[in-house]
């Protein structure tokens, strides 16, 4: 089976989807001739022509707005916002339009589209190239939100998203594009080629939306994570020697509640982990669900380990990033808590 980086897997997903369905079109800033600033669409214009993969003006509201019109016509646009941090001009189109089109027209018009966005920090991108805005999408009824953590899932989930009948936000942790970064920023990152989940089938397959997966079995504490933080969680479990179970959510909406409940009922302890800011983050939702569904199994309060409630700083990136040291401390604390 071929080995792929996350970038290659995402590209392969669009390639497969475009090859199978003439209605799939791909566009965004620098996406056409050049193939995207992260190279995710490299070669697609050459293969499928400028009518299927093309450069868009720098107008995120324009990109999403026209994609909605195309979806209403019957196409399946898969558009790229160059960085999730550039999404805000499109937010009105996403929230007020894409998310509600099916509902407000009683199914007369639908919006089968995917909006891809690189997300998260760890690349010294400062506050405009590092944000994790997933909670701004999970809070909106009508959207589905995906955050893959590895090449295999990225391809399978992206194909599933493109084939989904509703709008899907597909957040790509950019720090994972070229390797399974685990938060140890002072050590070299191993290449994806050395990781089992870089084995990616050439052709069509899907990873269904709404299914979490256990990345590490453990008995002591459950860590609920997604994207880059899955690898941070695995590293922290390794570093501390605490027998943590690591759940990779893969999709935030729809959410695999059963997987979370099963794990926390087993371990009795739960840490929710994300890179986004704490207050009103998706971790708040997860902690509430665990409290509602697992209260009588809990042996300690649910903890959240997240980015701070500040903009993402440039020089102090590693003081901001919730890496294995901060998570490791939380693991020790939650094991002592009674």
């Amino acid at each position: 089976m071929p080995r792929m980086t996350m970038i290659e897997a995402i590209r392969s997903a669009m390639d497969v989807a475009m090859g199978r369905d003439d209605d799939v079109v791909v566009f965004g800033e620098d996406v056409g001739f050049f193939g995207g600033v992260f190279r995710c669409t490299h070669g697609l214009q050459q293969k499928y022509g400028v009518s299927r993969c093309f450069d868009a003006p720098i107008s995120e509201s324009g990109i999403v707005g026209t994609a909605i019109g195309m979806a209403a016509y019957g196409l399946k646009p898969c558009v790229e916002i160059q960085f999730a941090d550039y999404m805000y001009p499109a937010y009105d189109q996403i929230v007020s339009e894409a998310a509600r089109l099916r509902y407000r027209s009683a199914g007369d018009f639908t919006c089968p589209m995917v909006i891809r966005m690189p997300t998260g920090g760890g690349i010294f991108g400062g506050q405009t190239h590092s944000q994790s805005p997933e909670a701004l999408f999970t809070h909106v009824a009508g959207l589905k939100t995906i955050v893959p953590s590895n090449p295999y899932d990225a391809k399978g989930l992206l194909i599933a998203a493109i084939e989904d009948p509703d709008p899907v936000i597909f957040l790509e942790p950019k720090r994972l594009y070229n390797g399974p970064f685990d938060g140890h920023h002072d050590k070299p990152v191993t290449a994806w080629s050395k990781h089992a989940l870089s084995e990616v089938p050439e052709g069509h397959y899907t990873v269904p939306l709404g299914q979490a997966v256990t990345r590490r079995e453990g008995a002591a504490v459950s860590i609920i994570a997604y994207g880059t933080m899955v690898h941070v969680a695995l590293a922290a479990a390794e570093d501390t020697g605490i027998d943590a179970e690591v759940i990779d959510l893969r999709t935030l909406v729809p959410l695999d509640l059963e997987a979370i409940v099963a794990s926390v009922e087993k371990t009795g302890r739960c840490i929710v982990l994300h890179e986004a800011t704490l207050t009103s983050g998706f971790g708040g939702e997860l902690a509430a669900l665990v409290q509602e569904h697992c209260f009588y199994h809990l042996e300690a309060p649910v903890m959240r380990v997240t980015g701070w409630d500040t903009p993402y700083p440039h020089a102090q990136e590693w003081d901001y990033f919730p890496g294995p040291a901060r998570l490791g401390q939380a693991l020790r604390d939650i094991m002592e808590a009674r």
């Binding site: 050049f34 450069d55 003006p57």
Partner: peptide, 9 residues
């Protein structure tokens, strides 16, 4: 504009 020539805007 990065890789995009001015005719696109």
């Amino acid at each position: 504009a990065i890789s995009t020539f001015q005719g696109i805007a």
